[in-house]
Design a protein around this nucleic acid. Structure first.
Lengths: 178, 178
DNA sequence: TATCGATGTGTACGCTCGTCCATATGGGAT
DNA sequence: ATCCCATATGGACGAGCGTACACATCGATA
């Protein structure tokens, strides 16, 4: 009963949900775990998000924006003269080098989307947004392939625990570009 | 109390687990759901598989063999004169065209392994087995890239619900091969 | 045939979960 | 100043869960 008026409650719940997914995975996401992480009563999470899907969509959509911000902040893909393969490889390297939470969360989204139709649009948004951005520098078919290859490379890194090899990534990405 | 002696009990439980994962996803896998699917009492699943991880590993490892069988049955990747990109694209097409259960299960495994260390080796087995097989026809670096690209393409198909475009796959795969 | 260990069975415990709801509160519209 | 409704709260409910355990059964071995 400490905080009866809390205008940012909803946002804080979303932030807490992202932390929970980062720490315990999507499987660990529950109204209760989020409520505890956000330090709000259970009823508060169920009030703002009637269903778990609703909460997941909100959290993962916000997480997507995090990656988009990295792209913009890096100014990547803007310079038409730059080496596209190197840009993508570097961008991915930066992404993987930073807080892995965001990366893992992104691919957990993929997993969840396979089974939860509610998440499909969010997953589609993410890869389409990147593909469209890349398409400015090449043709749509190549852009799609580049995104697919990057997905595969990231997955291999996450699954095998191997170091991300930026040079390797740049090399094989370059092969895809006609 | 119908069947007191049941030598194939363990195998039937594994088969049931695969069906459960196919139908409800890894999240729907539980001792109870598998017991119901296999038509055995709860205690039977906990007897043969002390933990859920143990059951999942057994089920997913068996599922992996399914794909390997497809590769062998098709005789793919054997003829050194054939078009490697076309072989891979065709193999993937056949895989995606058949019972989607196996495909979805494979990627659920992939992504579940992100959070469950027990599954990492099984996931690694799968992609390494394919990569090694492909490596017979090209160099290891290229093989790894081909597998990554295939993973990305499959994910895009599964997530967007789009048709698998074998021609497109063959094209971009060919670009990766030096 | 007697015995033993592997296998099968049923149940119970304690936990977390999603969901729902009656009630309290207070900011903003009137 | 008053009232209304969005917001906040805490608890209750039933379901499903993993796990553990005592007991039953049976094949194999001695």
């Amino acid at each position: 009963m400490v905080r009866r008026y809390d205008p940012d409650r909803r946002q804080r719940i979303i932030d807490a949900a992202i932390r929970v997914v980062g720490a315990k995975g999507i499987g660990g996401l529950s109204h209760r775990s989020v409520a505890a992480e956000a330090d709000v009563p259970l009823g508060s999470t169920t009030y703002h998000f009637k269903t778990l899907d609703e909460l997941m969509v909100a959290a993962l959509r916000q997480a997507n924006e995090g990656f988009a911000k990295l792209v913009v902040a890096r100014g990547a893909l803007d310079d038409p003269e730059s080496d596209l393969a190197a840009e993508l490889a570097g961008l991915t390297g930066e992404w993987l080098a930073g807080d892995r939470t965001g990366v893992e969360l992104e691919y957990e989204l993929y997993l969840a989307a396979l089974r939860r139709p509610a998440l499909r649009p969010v997953a589609a948004e993410w890869c389409q947004a990147l593909a469209e951005r890349v398409a400015h520098r090449t043709d749509p078919v190549t852009a799609r392939a580049l995104v697919a290859l990057l997905d595969g490379i990231c997955l291999q890194v996450l699954l095998t625990g191997a170091e991300y090899d930026e040079e390797y990534a740049r090399d094989v990405l370059a092969r895809v570009i006609p």
